[in-house]
Nucleic acid binder design. Structure first.
Lengths: 221, 221
DNA sequence: GTATTATTAGAGTATATACTCTAGGGAGTC
DNA sequence: GACTCCCTAGAGTATATACTCTAATAATAC
């Protein structure tokens, strides 16, 4: 593998593990057993590395969120979208952690991320439309659908932070993909009241598969 | 005002403005026109400053989220809770930004914040119960109520990040409290399907007051 | 007044971090 | 062999950052 690609891969790995803030360019070089000079031969600075990783992330999610316009959407489509998005979130999980700082220090990234968010929101909206056309959820006015899509986005992008900050036990048990995917339970909770009678049970059953093993609210405090 | 309190106040102000990551102890001292030595006479380290600010935040939100157990809850109560929580979020808005790093570097804070989250979740849950008792929303099984409460929490705590990252225009227009409170629109969107017929219009009217002036999803991309 | 304690200034330090610079190795081409 | 181009090593640097240390001053108690 080319050194350049190894740098991107190692960076992503270290960022995900320790958080971008805790990973320096020297760490990355050391982890690869290459010199800092070598790293800086391939990338002008740390921001460039992060930006390239973002481009990969963006590409992946855009790919996942492709929406067929020649047919309605099914419950299976919905499950696939959810699984895919959470897979993407997992693979690039460092990204949403220090998001605000990253965007503050790189204008390209700020612009691109804003557009990315809006594309995601539009995709979620179209998915709801497709599911309504497919008879899975009841059709809703565009206004409400837009607000619902935004709530879905907010829940998805905040679920990881919630797990890491609230669910964290005394042990520094590291997060697993399975735990992350319990966020699907929360997203499906949003949809529950809008399901059509004929698909309600099916979706409830899927939702049940992702039920978190968190203590209930009563036991929590 | 005591120097100690001035340090806390200035720190909060600078953290909110620039983000904790961009504010050093030297900045804080310079901003107050005191020496670093003076600052470190009052606080052992930066983490201690942040921890004390968190304690204030915690106290404020706990105060806001007190729930009367001798009566049902009204729509006015609900509005008050939402306004208050967003006020608190605004006053300590730096906190949720670098949350994960802050918790990583301070175990006290990690524990306390986890408990704080769980208290908030329990409070939201009880508010839903109270609103159901007051006939504002339809009663729901505890399981669903818990999941809904969690979604409310996720939407509230992520709304600010969304505004800063997605809504941000080219201009570095700084966020306003009014914009932040548009998050109430999103929270009320979550409640919509559960409202009782007799309160539906009232809550919809309140929701309308917070409608964001964002472009709709269609215009966005 | 004097002793004690609380507060402050400000220079200074150890460490980290992002990044630079120069020299050179290796592979291919002529 | 010599030239070129891509890549790499590794020492080094400027700056920032959290924090320390000492001495001095203000406040308070007796």
């Amino acid at each position: 593998m080319k050194t350049r690609d190894k740098i991107l891969l190692s960076s992503l790995e270290l960022f995900n593990e320790r958080g971008e803030r805790n990973v320096t360019t020297n760490h990355i070089a050391a982890h690869l057993a290459i010199s800092p000079g070598n790293l800086y031969y391939h990338f002008r600075n740390k921001s460039d590395i992060i930006y390239e990783i973002f481009l990969e992330y963006e590409k992946l999610v855009d790919y996942y969120l492709q929406i067929p316009d020649d047919r309605q959407l099914t419950v299976e489509d919905m499950t696939f979208y959810l699984e895919s998005v959470f897979d993407g979130l997992w693979s690039y999980r460092f990204f949403h952690r220090d998001l605000e700082f990253l965007l503050d220090s790189d204008e390209r990234l700020r612009r691109d991320y804003r557009d990315f968010t809006n594309r995601c929101l539009a995709a979620i909206d179209r998915i709801f439309e497709g599911l309504a056309a497919g008879g899975v959820i009841q059709p809703q006015p565009a206004e409400l659908r837009g607000a619902m899509s935004l709530n879905v986005w907010l829940v998805i992008t905040n679920w990881m932070a919630f797990l890491k900050t609230a669910h964290a036990t005394e042990l520094s048990t590291s997060l697993t993909l399975a735990e992350l995917k319990q966020g699907i339970y929360q997203v499906l909770t949003l949809e529950l009241p809008y399901l059509t009678p004929q698909y309600r049970d099916a979706v409830m059953a899927i939702r049940e598969r992702y039920r978190p093993e968190l203590p209930s609210v009563d036991e929590r405090s």
